[in-house]
Structure formats: structure tokens, C-alpha cells
Amino acid sequence: MSRRRHVLPGFGLTMGYTWIYLGVLVLLPLAGLALKTGTMGWGSFWAAISSPQVVASYKVSFGISFLAALTNGVLGLIAAWVLARYEFPGRRVLDALTDLPFAMPTAVAGIALTSLYGPHEWIGGLLAPWGIKVSYTLVGVYVALTFIGLPFVVRTLQPVIADLSAETEEAAATLGAGRWRTFWRVIFPSLLPALLTGVTLAYGRAVGEFGSVIFIAGNRPFHTEITPLLIVSKLESYDYNGAAALGFVMLAASFLIVLVSNGLQGWGARRRVA
């Protein structure tokens, strides 16, 4: 009697296919990475993930990603609000373009940003007289990571803004709250979970980003070198252990970021029901 029964057919077939596909493509290779790290011993693992060059790359990858995600939090909130609430010429185009960093190959974004922000180029040329150098500096890394994370905050916030009840805002207004007060007291708190989720997603994406950064960063060791690039150079010199150890650290960091983002999403979902 406890035999599971399903109304629609195809449960065994689709579940089986899904898990086999994931198993072969994802779980098995990931287990290989974990195993590789497991067999190398604590001493060499620690040495691989804590050398000064590696630590410097963490600072770039995790630190600049944080700044970029923060930028996306502020500007993404404004963008999501403007795209969801205002009607103005060009709105649809901007809305459609939001996903460009998602659809554009990272290498193309990389060379485009590098050309744009080079010292004698369109934007870089405007900044140079002010003493701001973008390409081949940390500012360049920041620009690339902001580009890559742009869709996340906007796309996470848009549906939540669309779902906001106009009546709540009207209620706040009838109670005598000005627009500014209404925003901070009523609107912002209800957007906060989605905003933080979006920022976390943008951060997660930026931490692992490779293609768009390596062109504009200049990749100077100890200065503008990102962790994913270190993994690649270790692989190129056949240092599989070192690469696996760094990969493991990046993977653990990603897991942590996803846990945080799932927690935030759960928080947001509970708030919406309430």
C-alpha cells in the first residue's frame, strides 16, 4: 500500500535520467576533486592555500568582488526600481540589456572593457587626466566584476518590486509619511531580503569570475592576480595538487555563499507569506 503512485507518468524515467546525468557530469568529478585534496595531507594542503602569492590573490578575488557586489547593490536597487516603476523612452531597451553580462561571452566582455578603459581610449582617456588608471589596475578588476554581477540584483529585485502592494504605500501616505519616510520605513524593509540575496549572488558570481577579469587586470602577481587565474597557472605547470587545493577552497567559499543566499531567500519567502 505504501507504494508511491504518481498521477502523471514519467517519474522513473525523468528522475533516473536527471540523477545519472548529474552523477556523471557533476558529482563524480567533484568527488574526484575532494578525493585529490583529501590524499594530499594537511601540511601540503595548508602550504598550497596559504602561500603569500595565494593570499594576495584571495584579497583581490574576495575583496574586490565585495566592493563590486556592494556597488551593484546600490545601483542595482535604483535600476530595478526605475525599470519596474517608471515609464520613459528607452526603458524596454535598458530592461532587455540588463541580461547582457549573462549572454555576452566573458572573454568578449574582457577585451571590450579593456579597450574602453585603456588610458587612451573612450572612457579611460577621460579618466586619465584625473590620475585614475583603470586598465591593468585593481580598478579594472572592479569594473569587470561590477559588469559581471549587474544582472543579479536587478533581476532578483524586479519581481519583488512588482509584487509590492500599492495599498501599503498608500496606507503609509494616508498616515502622514512623506515619500522618503515611506521608502525607508515601508518599502526598503520589504525589499531587503531580495536585495541581500541579489548582492550575495552577484558576489558569488564575481568571486569565481575568470574571463572578463584576466584581460583588464594585467595579472601582476601580488597585485592584480585573481585566485581562479592561479588555479589555471598551477594546472599549466602540472601542479595538480596545488590546483586541487585552491579549487577546493574556492568551492568551499561558493558553498558558503550559496548557503547564505538560500538562507536569505528563505527569510524573504517567509516575510512575503506573513
Binding site: G208, F210, P228, I231, G247, M250, S254, V258
Partner: peptide, 8 residues
Amino acid sequence: PLWISPVI
């Protein structure tokens, strides 16, 4: 794959 580095 969306949240881990493509390099991985």
C-alpha cells in the same frame, strides 16, 4: 555551475 568558478 552558476555559482562555482568556471575554472573549477
